[in-house]
Each structure stands twice: as structure tokens, then as C-alpha cells.
Amino acid sequence: MVEVNYSQRRPSTVISIDRIPELKGWRQNGDRIEMGACMTYSEMEDPLFAAYVPSLAQAARTVGSPQIRNAGTLGGNLATASPAGDTLPPLAALNAQITLRSLRGERITTLSNLITGVKSANLGRDEVIVKVSVEAVDGPQEFLKAGTRNAMVISVATVALVLDAARRQVRIALGSVSPVPLRASAAEGWIADQVNWESPSVPDKEAVEHFGELVASAATPITDHRSTSGYRSHAVGVMAKRALARALS
């Protein structure tokens, strides 16, 4: 809409999908949570939803302003495919499945297959995002964001962490530190072996430090007008340690 307001884009056709009930809100389907593409950030802040997908609720709370959160949607965040999209790291850490539909049929894809580069989504001209499905994970989730202030801020760096107790996995995804959302796989594998899964905790403080270093080294950030590459790497390391500590507390 901003591009339209600034005459950078002149749509030849407009199709409103605002009032399609199937694209709205969220629902529980077995052990999965399904979110419609038109689900707004405000709806993600709902405590009922937050109980199932806390990292997305936390991410939604950090987006723009109340006005933006009332209008902006999950599908919009995905299709925009910005490196700074705040819902993307939680979706990456949750192994989200994204359903796309066109007259040719329906396909289900992953975040890493959908988002291929900076503001570049593998989305056909005839395709719409219909829904996003994530598992209702047994275990805590955290989302942390570094920015220049608390409101109306585009992320400098973000971290989403999911502690999947059933699979004994720690999954961590980073935002704004590479062209696409990034999973810190080496850090994930290493810390999973350090966690005492009987009563989730990390006995060794040095292990938490090393986890932060591994996460920081996974980032491949650039320096731009919002931050420097060095600060972004440092920030994701600090936020990773903090997210792990909160998830284990």
C-alpha cells in the first residue's frame, strides 16, 4: 500500500481477500495450530493464541504500532519476505508448513523454500497464501528483538527459540542477520546434547556461553543504516543466551 501511495506501483487489478472467512483467525487441528493468511498481529497477541504459540505472540507484540498490528497480517509478512519480517524467525523455529493455492491446485511448502532472498518469495503470480500450520510444541518458546526503541521499530536483529521437550530439540532461528531467516543448526545440535532433558536445564554456564558464540557465528549480517554487521552478530549471541535462560527458567 505504501508503494501504491507513493505511485511506485499502480495495480491493474485489485482483489480483496479481507472477507474470506477461511483466511481469517486461527484454529486448533489435532496437535497443530492453523493460522489463516489474513490473521492480524493483534489476533496473535490474544492470550488464547499466545498459550499455544508464544513466540509468535511475542513477535507480533513488537511489530509497529497498535494501528499497524490491527491491519498487518501473517500472510502479508510472509509474502513481503523482508529479512526483518518479525514473524519469520518464530515460523522457522517452529518448522511451519505454509499452504499456497491457485487454480492449478494446492501445495504445502516450508519457510526456507518459500523465502528465497531479500524480499523475494517463491510465490506464483496466480498463487495466494492460504494458511500457516505449526505444531503446538510441548515446551517453552521465546522471541527477542533488538531495535533502536520499543515502538515503531524495524528489527536490527531477532532471535526465536523453541524448546521441543518431546523431541529433545532446541530450535533457534535468527532474523535481520542474513537475506533470509536463518536456523543456527550447529548451535542447535550442540546445545541439545548439553541440556538435561529430565528436568530441562543446562548445568554448565560455559555451555550457555558457547551456545551464544555458536549462534553469533551462524549469523551473516550486513552493515546498513540500521546497524553494523558486528553489532548484529553480537546481539544475536546475547539474545540467544537470554532466550535459552528464559526457556529453561
Binding site: M1, V2, Y6, V14, S16, S65, Q67, I68, N70, M152
Partner: peptide, 30 residues
Amino acid sequence: CDQGECGSCTVLLDGMAVCSCLVLAASAVG
């Protein structure tokens, strides 16, 4: 600002505050 940054254009749409610069007018029918 015409880009949702300033809030000067805030209106209520079905009771929710939104930036009217970011809402396509035709989609506000009904």
C-alpha cells in the same frame, strides 16, 4: 506520511484503530 509511520490518519475500522493510509478504500466496503 502516507506510510503508516505517524498515526495522523488513524480511524476506526469495525471498532479497531488503523492507519487509513494503509487501507485500500475499496476494501472497506461493508
